[in-house]
Simulated scan of single mutants.
Amino acid sequence: MAYINNTNLSNQNYRASDILVCAMARLINNEETVFHGVSSHMPMLAVMLAKALHAPDAVHLNIPGGVNPKPAALQKYTSAGSELLDHASAYFPLAEVFDLSMRGKLDVAFLSGIQFDVNGNVNASVIGDYHRPKVRMPGGAGSAVLIPTAKRAIIWRTKHDKRTFVDKVDFVTTRGNIDRIITPLCIFKFENGKLVLDTIHPMSSLEEVIENTSFKVEYSKVEYTAPPTQQELTLLRRLDPKDYRNIEF
Score class of each variant (00 low, 15 high):
P138G: 07
I187G: 08
N13P: 04
V38A: 09
V59I: 15
A55G: 00
K134Y: 10
G66Y: 09
P148C: 06
V97F: 06
A25C: 11
R238Q: 13
P43T: 08
N8E: 10
V108E: 00
N212I: 00
L185N: 15
E83R: 07
Y224Q: 04
K189H: 15
E191G: 02
V47C: 06
V222S: 03
S39N: 14
D107Q: 02
S204W: 03
V135Q: 13
Y91A: 09
A80H: 12
R26F: 04
S10E: 13
S143N: 13
V169A: 00
K242S: 13
H160Q: 12
Q231C: 02
I178K: 04
M203C: 07
P228A: 11
L185Q: 14
V38T: 07
L233K: 12
L49M: 07
S89Q: 15
A124Y: 09
Y91S: 13
D57A: 13
T33Y: 04
V97H: 07
I182P: 05
A141S: 10
N30F: 04
S101E: 03
D129H: 13
A90I: 03
M1N: 04
D129C: 04
E207L: 08
N8W: 02
N177S: 13
H201G: 05
L45I: 07
N212K: 14
G81T: 10
V59W: 02
N11A: 09
S82V: 11
D167N: 13
G193M: 01
T183S: 01
S204R: 06
L233N: 11
M42F: 01
E96S: 15
T173S: 15
G104K: 00
K51T: 02
E248A: 11
A46N: 07
V122A: 03
E218C: 01
I114W: 14
T225S: 14
P93R: 03
P148M: 07
R180P: 04
N68S: 11
I114P: 00
D179I: 01
G37F: 05
N11P: 00
W156G: 12
V169E: 00
H160E: 11
F249M: 08
L197E: 11
A150G: 12
P43D: 08
M24A: 15
I187R: 11
D129S: 08
E96Q: 14
E208A: 09
A16S: 13
L236C: 01
T234M: 07
V118N: 10
P148Y: 07
M203Q: 15
P69S: 06
E211D: 13
G142A: 15
V97I: 15
Y77E: 13
N13K: 14
C22I: 08
R152S: 11
D170F: 05
G104P: 00
F110C: 09
G65R: 08
T225A: 14
K242N: 12
Q231F: 01
N177Y: 09
T229D: 06
Q12V: 10
N246F: 02
Y224C: 01
Y91H: 12
S112R: 07
Q230S: 14
V38D: 09
E32P: 01
A72S: 12
K76L: 08
